[in-house]
Design a protein around this nucleic acid. Structure first.
Lengths: 199, 199
DNA sequence: GCCTGTTTTGACCAACAGGTCAAAACCGAC
DNA sequence: GTCGGTTTTGACCTGTTGGTCAAAACAGGC
């Protein structure tokens, strides 16, 4: 249904908007800024999306779609520690590979989740509830050390997303701009959760 | 030097501005909004602070002043595990008691630290470098388990600030708005770092 | 009460923001 | 090339924003 030009331009817009929204927040971003970053004029951009809000919504929808995948993959039938470590690894890879998406999400939450409140207490909470039961089963079976499942998940989110959201701080503290912190982070987090969950 | 009215009004402005900036970010906040929240008219507010920027700067300066105190208190002469746990506790108390300050800081970092970049690679990095040496000494003496000091600090920041910055998400996932997550968080973090650092 | 400095205000401005619109330019099928 | 629909643009409108200013209102010491 969509022409070549449409595909190319909507993609360029979303790409540019992700850049701008993730670093300036919704209100801090201007349509003109996004348009220029996408190589279009403002009216031309508005030809593809009816409003600034619509671009932001499209971006968030696409993000939330994939946001839960790493957790969904946590498998009750697997080896408990490996499953958790796998989840941590996937989340950390998302921070590394999609830092802008992480910051877009972070912006939204910090500002009180005005647009994704229902998602948080809906889909997200449901999935976390479900996986928390899995964690509790594992604890009941003595497969992993007793731990509050909810705070376990909070810890995983905090530790992994930190490397995307606070990227600037991480690099500033580590000193050299060229260093990739992710290998060390990966080892560090693996050690943390291994020690935390070993029965 | 400052009159009663000046003290009262500048305090009210900073208080209101903290509210507004921490939830909407710098560009998302409007001077009018801050003025109304402080119970003043916009020109009246501008009588006390020369610009929106000046209010924001005053707020950040005050914050950064106190931001490092919990880490400064980490004492090389103390019992290593207790010292780290004390730092974690202090940081978590800051998240609980000053969540708006934490979000103000988070907003700044996520947006690339346009105003506090020098602080990050200056004061902050220096202090972290110094305390990292302390951690390494403790490791060398076999007092705590070997761990990358920098990533240890990142972990502490991530885990404690998460409860302030992502407060909405925490409450949404936990379900009941009335529950105070901090007691559980405190116990959880204590357990994490104890297991992490026990030799 | 009066006088001096402080505080407050309403009216105003220029810049910028999101968004509209009609007309022009462009594209590809025929 | 020409024709229909698609794409792009410049000019424009309206509301908002940060900030100014002169004048009014208000202290509080005498």
């Amino acid at each position: 249904m969509a022409t070549r030009i449409q595909q190319k331009n909507t993609a360029a817009i979303l790409e540019a908007a992700l850049d701008v929204f993730s670093t300036h927040g919704f209100r801090g971003a201007t349509v003109d800024q996004i348009a220029r970053a996408a190589g279009l004029s403002k009216p031309n951009l508005l030809y593809y999306f009816p409003s600034k809000e619509a671009i932001h919504t499209a971006l968030l929808d696409g993000l939330l779609e994939a946001w839960l995948d790493p957790l969904r993959a946590l498998d009750e039938a697997g080896e408990p520690l490996d499953e958790v470590l796998g989840y941590v690894r996937r989340k950390l890879e998302m921070s590394r590979d999609f830092p802008r998406e992480s910051r877009l999400f972070a912006n939204e939450i910090i500002q009180g989740a005005p647009r994704i409140g229902p998602y948080l207490s809906g889909e997200l909470k449901d999935l976390v509830d479900e996986k928390s039961r899995v964690i509790r089963h594992w604890i009941g079976d003595g497969k992993i050390a007793p731990v509050d499942p909810y705070h376990l998940f909070f810890s995983i989110w905090a530790l992994t997303q930190h490397y995307a959201d606070f990227d600037v701080q991480v690099h500033a503290v580590l000193g050299s701009k060229d260093i990739d912190p992710y290998p060390d982070a990966q080892a560090h987090l693996e050690a943390i959760f291994t020690r935390m969950l070993r029965p």
